[in-house]
Amino acid sequence: MNEPAALTPSSRSTHAPRPLGEPSHALVDRSLVALGGGAACILVVVLAVVAAVVLDLALPSVRALGFGFVTGRQWDPVHGDLGALPFLYGTVVTSLVALTLAVPVALGVALFLTDLGPLPLRRPVAALVELLAAVPGVVYGLWAAIVLAPLLRTTVEPALEAHLGFLPMFRGPKVGVGLLCASLVLAVMILPTIASLSREVLRAVPIELREGGLALGATRWDVVRRIVLPHAKQGIFGAILLGFGRAVGETMAVAMVVGSRADITGSLFSPGYTMSSVMANELPEATSTLHVAALAEIGLLLFAITFAFNVAARLLVSRVRGPEAALVRVVTPRLEEHT
């Protein structure tokens, strides 16, 4: 998009000669610009406050526990033995398992929506995916706690152990709630997110390229494999990173089914804990300063992780289109015409 010269503040006055007879707009103009600028600055201030408060809360723990905090495997607030590794482990394991399960399916769905699916089905499926991306996490948690966990305990976990029990991750107590349950609910939650973001990225591949390929006799799959995917690679990677960011930050659905146990076992069946869910559970009750600070430091780590992932993801996605593609996709009518 071209940047019109007129739109930089410095050159503003030269371009708006005030017509005779109109009231002075310069003042109104200036104050409204200031208002907009002020509103924009609020965003920066809010982010700064968030970062500063979390840092401030976490400082005692950073000082007292140092780097050992990240590698400590014990979480025993009563004895001041505070190590965050079990939470890092839980967060990473659940998010990775969720990604592994969700990404292939989400990409399949995205390709279905842009290139491969039967045309009459694309629109309804797309609408459903949008809708499901909007269902609140706590509703997913409700479903997972009441429907999914019992199903895992009675059916899925015994079956997994019977067939894949040679892997240590599919052995252990069959309780229902645990890392596996949390991973599954996360997978279900991030699937629509990744699918609709990838769809956006795929759509941004110019239609001319596709038409060119088809005109040369390529099949739809050839077009996807040779033209669309290479073109959209980065963007899709960005979509996956954003999905990972959502999985890492999700609190309620995970807190409801993860089993709330700060432990590192190799098994996916065993109960675990994640960074966001331990904050939700323990922050209101943490009494000692160090406990509060340690929880805040977990928040700080979480902040840093999501920060890194979001920045990386946005860099990748924004090469394709504006970074807020997620929200804009439904909103931009121009894009609707492609399907």
Binding site: L47, V248, T251, S276, M279, A280, L302, F309, N310
Partner: peptide, 9 residues
């Protein structure tokens, strides 16, 4: 960045 901050934070 703010859009990506986990809501619990």
């Amino acid at each position: 960045v703010l859009a990506g901050v986990p809501s619990i934070i």
